[in-house]
Simulated assay, not measured.
Amino acid sequence: MAGIDITHPHSLPPEKARSAVEAVAKKLSERFDMKYGWDGDKLNFSRSGVDGAIALLPGNLRVTAKLGFLLSAMQGPIEAEIRRVLAEKF
């Protein structure tokens, strides 16, 4: 199983960072039929072929995901899109 592990710095206060992560998750949910929910400061998300989380850390976000067989072939473009969205929002 292919994996994604991205750490992205941010300087937002915790509540604004949480709101931004929520907005990203909502967009992913609408676009890719992804389910998500908060567990403390970690937003877990999943859909067929993907299980992952976005952890809010002091000064950083950490995005981790396990990609199933079909999506593992698209790991590069998926990772690039995640980095683009993080740079845009944070």
Score class of each variant (00 low, 15 high):
residue 67 L to Y: 02
residue 88 E to S: 12
residue 17 A to V: 10
residue 11 S to R: 12
residue 67 L to C: 05
residue 84 R to C: 13
residue 33 D to G: 04
residue 2 A to G: 09
residue 47 R to Y: 01
residue 11 S to M: 05
residue 34 M to V: 03
residue 24 V to E: 02
residue 13 P to Y: 07
residue 4 I to A: 04
residue 65 A to Y: 03
residue 9 P to A: 10
residue 25 A to H: 04
residue 14 P to C: 02
residue 12 L to K: 09
residue 21 V to S: 08
residue 75 Q to A: 13
residue 33 D to K: 07
residue 7 T to L: 07
residue 71 L to C: 10
residue 44 N to Y: 12
residue 27 K to N: 09
residue 65 A to L: 11
residue 67 L to K: 09
residue 60 N to G: 01
residue 61 L to T: 14
residue 74 M to R: 14
residue 78 I to D: 06
residue 30 E to M: 05
residue 12 L to A: 12
residue 65 A to C: 10
residue 89 K to V: 14
residue 11 S to L: 06
residue 1 M to W: 00
residue 13 P to R: 13
residue 21 V to M: 07
residue 18 R to W: 01
residue 47 R to M: 10
residue 47 R to A: 10
residue 31 R to S: 13
residue 56 L to C: 04
residue 75 Q to T: 11
residue 15 E to Y: 08
residue 6 I to K: 07
residue 13 P to W: 04
residue 19 S to E: 15
residue 87 A to Y: 08
residue 47 R to Q: 11
residue 19 S to L: 10
residue 17 A to G: 09
residue 42 K to L: 03
residue 33 D to Q: 12
residue 81 E to R: 14
residue 74 M to G: 03
residue 88 E to L: 09
residue 36 Y to A: 09
residue 13 P to H: 09
residue 76 G to N: 11
residue 66 K to L: 11
residue 4 I to N: 04
residue 2 A to I: 04
residue 27 K to Q: 14
residue 60 N to M: 07
residue 32 F to T: 03
residue 2 A to P: 15
residue 44 N to C: 01
residue 36 Y to P: 00
residue 9 P to G: 08
residue 87 A to L: 02
residue 29 S to D: 04
residue 16 K to Q: 13
residue 71 L to S: 03
residue 6 I to V: 14
residue 4 I to C: 08
residue 10 H to P: 05
residue 89 K to C: 02
residue 42 K to S: 12
residue 21 V to A: 13
residue 70 L to C: 02
residue 50 V to P: 01
residue 11 S to G: 15
residue 88 E to G: 07
residue 26 K to H: 13
residue 85 V to D: 00
residue 69 F to P: 05
residue 11 S to Q: 14
residue 47 R to H: 04
residue 72 S to R: 07
residue 51 D to A: 12
residue 16 K to E: 15
residue 38 W to N: 05
